[in-house]
Design a protein around this nucleic acid. Structure first.
Length: 496
RNA sequence: GGCGGCGUAGCUCAGCUGGUUAGAGCACACGGCUCAUAAUCGUGGGGUCGUCGGUUCGAGUCCGACCGCCGCUACCA
């Protein structure tokens, strides 16, 4: 029995769920569903990041307490994921007591081991924002980007994490484990960064109080990044349930966007090493969804609203499009136009229509029941190799390849029907029955492979074709005779 | 500047360690069919594989130069 632990980033609750966060959820969900299908024990964790200065400010602007504010915003994420059929097993909120406990436990351990020390943090501070800025963030090299007023150099006593002590171990980790970061180009980035040399980083703030308290010094809270990463441990019972922890850690797969790669691939493993636990096994780094080559932005008005697509078409439609349109790890150019095009071509015309064809033909020419699945003799659908290829693709975190192989089975099914032409033959013609049985089985296999991407439609395909269960991921002869269900078009064509 | 990557049909891309006439999907054109969501099936057009040079019996696939893009170059959830 294999254990598969996968995480998404936890989202900062300052904004609403959008296409980028939905994309991460959908990918992680697909991988989780794939491994459940394989029979693995799966733990899929997502959540929200609720501390930090910007949250406190947003709460103040809205006239509520920070906790009231994050209760409200976090719920928006949870509800959104429900609408996209995201099958998470746990949802971590960083303001939960269990998380604070884990953070304090974990960082105390690092502190005990001598990798956290007190020092002076010097930075450029905007009094109005009550926040530090990097020089690169400033306007004209000296003004706060929010208030446009000059920042001042300030300093405070902070705790620092001895990141630099892990420089060599991190390089060694990735050199001996090149598969630890997918895609490879992100591995190169991380190694390049590491080879420049690391400096220690400050991990607490005394100027804010919306955060997890530093247990050995109550005047400080942990800087938001440090507590956020630790959610990956909260979910598996670090410090509270050794058995649970040992079961899932360290064979964890962290899915994340390329913009937060360094925090995950540098800081986080170092923190784990400092605490005396193994670093996480793998990082799955996604690209960005671009619209006409540009980052989506509210001002450009070029957004794709994931929830709107889900309600207009279906959650499956959005999921399929995002997983199909782009290779994992690459930036993808997306638009509503291409979404409709892919939806019609693949889901309505090829897949949905094939289901309609085989059900209708079986009713008219096949005796009204599910046609038997014949022995594969002369594998006319090419299903065997295609299923194998799809399995490899899912295992290698390449949803678009897996989908492509499934669709090849579907196309072969349509072609087979054209060749045999059951509609021109008498009812119960043996060749018709053979072809219909093959297409039926082809659809079962395609539905299984596609189920991580389009869970609803996959279940519907199986049930309409009279398959009691999903069955195995290989051609399985079966006597047929089950009841069929005609039903409405699975993916109604959309006309624009 | 340094490090890394990319540039293949109208569009999005596959092409692992170099080897028959360079592939897929979409789009387009023509033809067939009518079971099906005016869906489907077949055929076809279209590519100097960024440019120049080199290695090799042979290069999209290796090497060099150049042109054009892009990412990273620390405390942005």
């Amino acid at each position: 029995m294999t254990n598969f632990y996968i995480t998404t980033p936890i989202y900062y609750v300052n904004g609403d769920p959008h296409l980028g966060t939905a994309y991460a959820e959908i990918n992680a969900d697909a991988f989780a569903r794939w491994h459940r299908l394989l029979g693995d024990q799966v733990l899929f964790v997502t959540g929200t990041d609720e501390y930090g200065l910007k949250i406190a400010q947003a709460a103040a602007e809205n006239g509520v307490t920070p906790q009231e504010w994050v209760d409200r915003t976090s719920e928006r994420f949870r509800r959104a994921w429900g609408k996209l059929d995201i099958s998470f097993d746990d949802f971590i909120r960083t303001t939960e007591p269990r998380h604070a406990r884990t953070v304090q436990e974990f960082l105390s351990e690092i502190h005990r081991r001598g990798y956290i020390y007190k020092d002076l943090y010097v930075g450029l501070y905007c009094v109005s924002c009550e926040a530090y800025y990097q020089e690169s963030e400033l306007v004209n090299g000296r003004d706060c980007p929010v208030h446009g007023r000059p920042v001042t150099e300030m300093s405070e006593e902070n705790y620092f994490f001895a990141l630099s002590k892990f420089n060599d171990r991190l390089i060694e980790l990735y050199e001996s484990n090149p598969g630890a970061i997918i895609p490879e180009t992100r591995l190169h980035e991380v190694l390049g960064f590491l080879r420049q040399g690391l400096t220690d980083v400050s991990i607490t703030r005394s100027s804010i109080d919306w955060g997890v308290r530093v247990p050995w010094d109550e005047g400080h809270v942990f800087y938001v990044w440090y507590d956020a990463l630790i959610n990956y441990l909260t979910a598996v019972g670090y410090g509270t349930s050794q058995g649970t922890f040992d079961r899932w850690w360290p064979s964890v797969h962290h899915l994340l966007g390329k913009d937060i790669l360094r925090f995950h691939a540098v800081w986080w493993p170092a923190m784990c090493m400092a605490a005396g636990i193994d670093p996480p096994a793998q990082f799955l780094v996604t690209g960005w969804m671009l619209v006409n080559g540009e980052k989506m932005s509210k001002s450009l008005g070029n957004q794709i609203d994931p929830l709107a697509v889900a309600s207009e078409l279906s959650p499956d439609a959005l999921r399929y499009y995002l997983l199909r349109a782009n290779g994992f790890g690459l930036d993808g150019d997306v638009s509503m136009e291409s979404l409709y095009r892919v939806y019609n071509a693949d889901l309505a015309n090829d897949l949905g229509n094939l289901l309609s064809r085989v059900v209708a033909l079986s009713m008219q020419k096949g005796g009204g029941v599910a046609p038997a699945v014949p022995e594969i003799g002369g594998d006319v659908l090419g299903a065997g190799p295609l299923v194998e290829a799809a399995v490899s693709a899912w295992n290698a975190f390449k949803p678009n390849d897996a989908i492509e192989h499934a669709m090849a089975i579907v196309r072969a099914g349509n072609a087979l029907l054209e060749r045999v032409e059951p509609w021109r033959r008498p009812a119960l013609d043996p060749e018709s029955l053979d072809a219909l049985g093959r297409v039926r089985e082809g659809l079962r296999l395609a539905a299984a492979i596609l189920s991580p991407a389009i869970p609803r439609a996959s279940a519907e395909i199986l049930s309409r074709l009279g398959f009691g269960a999903r069955g195995e991921l290989r051609w399985t002869p079966e006597p047929g005779g089950a009841a069929l269900e005609k039903g409405a078009p699975l993916f109604p064509r959309v006309v624009k």
